[in-house]
Every structure is written in structure tokens, then in C-alpha cells.
Computed example of a mutant assay.
Amino acid sequence: MIVSRGTIDGIAAALAAHGLILRGGFRFDGDEAAPGGASGSPASSALLVGQAGAAPWPHFQRWLGRQPRPVANPLDTWSREVIGAVAREFGARAVSPSDRPYLPFQQWATRAEGLKPSPLGILMHPEYGLWHAYRGALLFEEEIFLPEPHAAIHLCDTCTEKPCMKSCPVDAYSEQGFAHEACLDHVRGPTGAPCRTGGCLDRNVCPYGADYRYPPEAQAFHMAAFARL
């Protein structure tokens, strides 16, 4: 059985009602240990679900405002609720990047869209820049025939100045990797207010995808979640 183009269009429409989009898909190789689909049999195909810019933000905020009590990990909870409902409607299994044991979402994203990591570790998109995310995936036991992704232009290769490596006051990002503790101490400390209220300075200085930059309130939400780690 094959997942039809009409089904994929229906999934895209259902996700769009919540500000989410399909982020490409791929077929699992016959010799790899694919996760289970809706019935528990190994999945044959995956469709990635995510966002470009902050389109889901108002939908998420309305959902959050309707909750009778505080919700732990609210964005993950909302994403699971929305993507799970779409999965049930179309006979798929929904999985999330925060599920344990962790699934290789970054590898899946590379397979689906041909993206490469930026110096900040976030995958660089040729249109969205660093302002995009993957919120889940739909696993199908049926085949999905999608065109192979073309290798995307990796904008970081064309960027000679690399401002994203120069704006953090504690040099959290370097060729040695991400200095998690230094970043966390700074964000939590007395000089970290600009990061807490407006988001990561290194990420914000990137010149690509500026039209998709998350609004300050969304960035502050994500930074608060990071600072609670």
C-alpha cells in the first residue's frame, strides 16, 4: 500500500490549521532498524513535521491560555497533542524529538531536506536560516514515494565573517563546541538579561532568514525553558 499524494495534501492542510508544516520525508532502508508504526510493525516511511518562523506561536499561546492549570513542558505537550491527532486521523504513529529513548531527528532532517548544521548546531535552512524547528514526525507502515531531496545550499559556507561566533559575551560557541555551563551561567546571571528577554545573541546576529526570526516573546519563552535545565 502507498500513501497517496491526496493523503499527504490532507496532512499538510490539517497541520496548517495549527501553523505547522511538513518538512519533507524519506523511506527507511530495508536493513535499518526502523521504529514501529501505528500497529507496531516497522515503519516504512516518515514525514517530518515542523515550523518555519513563529507561525505556530499564536496557536500555541491560545491553547496554553485555555489550560486550567500549569502544564509541564507546554510546547512539547501542545506539539504532541496536535501532531498526535493528525497521526490518528491518517493512520500514522506520531513521535517527538523529546521522546525517550531519543530518535535521530537531526539525521532524519538531513535525510528529508538535505540540510547541514550551522556553527551553532542548528541546521541551516536556505530560506528560513536558523529560524525553524522540527516538532515531530509521522511514521507510516506504508510506502511514501517522495523525490529525493536536493543538496541544499549551505549558507554558512558562503558566510566569511561568521558573526554567530563573535556575539556571545562568554564565547559559548567555538570550534571546540558548545560551552553549555558557561552559557547557562551567563543566561541565569545578572548580565544575561538581553539573552533572557530577546534570545541568543549569536543566533540573532545571523543575517540569513531574518524575515522568519522569532518574536522576542517566543525567544524569551525558549530561553526560559533552557535556563531551567
Rank of each mutant, 00 (worst) to 15 (best):
A112F: 06
I21H: 00
S45W: 00
S4Q: 04
V86Q: 05
L48D: 01
G65T: 05
F178K: 06
S167M: 14
Y128I: 04
A87G: 14
K116D: 11
A33R: 15
L75M: 09
A133Q: 08
V170N: 03
E142M: 06
P97K: 09
I122V: 15
R69K: 14
S79D: 13
V49I: 08
K162Q: 15
C156V: 11
A87M: 10
H180V: 11
G6I: 03
D202F: 00
G209H: 03
L22K: 13
E148M: 11
F90C: 01
S167Y: 04
Q51G: 14
G10R: 11
G19V: 12
A225Q: 07
V187N: 07
E141Q: 10
L20V: 11
I8N: 04
F90A: 04
L22H: 13
W63G: 07
K116Q: 15
E161F: 01
H222E: 04
A43S: 14
Q61K: 13
P194Q: 07
V205H: 12
G50T: 05
A225E: 12
D185E: 14
A193K: 12
V170M: 02
Y208Q: 14
W131N: 05
M165N: 01
M1V: 09
A55L: 11
Y128D: 03
G199P: 04
P194G: 06
A13S: 13
N204H: 08
A16H: 11
R188L: 11
Y134T: 14
G199Q: 02
E32I: 08
C164P: 05
L48G: 06
A193H: 11
A38H: 01
E175V: 08
P101D: 11
S79E: 10
H59S: 13
I21N: 00
P119D: 03
W131H: 14
Q106T: 10
L120F: 07
Y208F: 15
A182Q: 04
Y134P: 00
Y208K: 13
R196P: 05
P70K: 09
C168V: 05
L130S: 13
E127G: 02
R66V: 10
R196N: 09
G121C: 08
D31W: 05
S41C: 05
